[in-house]
């Protein structure tokens, strides 16, 4: 029963959602709306409840691993102290002082968390530079084609006088023809892969979402 019930719920939900797409009838819409209330609202409520318990599991996992590192003085244990400190400060600071502007919770959010997040995102530029350097080294014919294509695409945004017009046309052609064709081929494959996986899940062939086969 423990194994069969989730498969039954998934099967009924999946078939219901697939069929309702083809039924425009008022009764179908009515059924969909009320079914939708059940599936979406009650379903979402369930997800929130499960999410809270899952969050507790997650926090417990984080706490256990970091505490273990501190206790064993593992390499980089100081970072674990910072992680635990941050976790408890934000967990306690919110209920204790509130989350209005000017409270310690919001000050940590604005003056520590936000700049750190912005820094992380900014680092992406350096990662892109180093990755682009490796990708665009003209060591083979294909790498040279890639380099030239990238140059055309990047230079389309820069005013280059007389060659701007032809470069713009070439860049547009590259984006709209070969690049678009490759994108669409991948997208069709992804779409079919998703539908096939959904069918396997609905029919109970694929059960990994339950954590076991």
């Amino acid at each position: 029963m423990r194994g069969q019930l989730p498969i039954l719920i998934v099967f009924v939900s999946g078939v219901f959602m697939a069929i309702q797409y083809f039924i425009p009838h008022d009764a179908g819409v009515f059924f969909y709306e009320y079914g939708g209330v059940f599936f979406y609202e009650y379903g979402l409520d369930c997800i929130i409840v499960i999410g809270v318990f899952a969050m507790l599991l997650g926090i417990w996992s984080l706490f256990r691993v970091q505490l273990d590192k501190v206790a064993k003085r593992s390499p980089g244990w100081g970072y674990s102290v910072v992680a635990l400190g941050g976790l408890f400060f934000m967990m306690i600071g919110g209920p204790l002082w509130g989350i209005e502007e000017g409270t310690p919770f919001m000050q940590v959010f604005w003056y520590i968390y936000t700049p750190i997040q912005a820094t992380m995102f900014s680092l992406l530029a350096f990662y892109i530079a180093s990755a682009a350097y490796r990708a665009f080294r003209a060591r083979t014919v294909l790498a040279t084609i890639l380099l030239l294509t990238a140059m055309v695409i990047m230079l389309r945004l820069i005013p280059l006088g007389a060659i701007s017009g032809p470069n713009q046309k070439l860049a547009t052609w590259i984006l709209m023809v070969p690049s678009m064709a490759a994108n669409r081929a991948i997208l069709i494959g992804i779409g079919l892969g998703i539908v096939a996986t959904c069918l396997k899940i609905i029919l109970g062939i694929e059960r990994a979402y339950m954590g076991h086969d």
Partner: peptide, 13 residues
Amino acid sequence: PMVVPVAEERVKE
């Protein structure tokens, strides 16, 4: 966090 129990089960299995 919702992925944690599923991943634990998969690895354990």
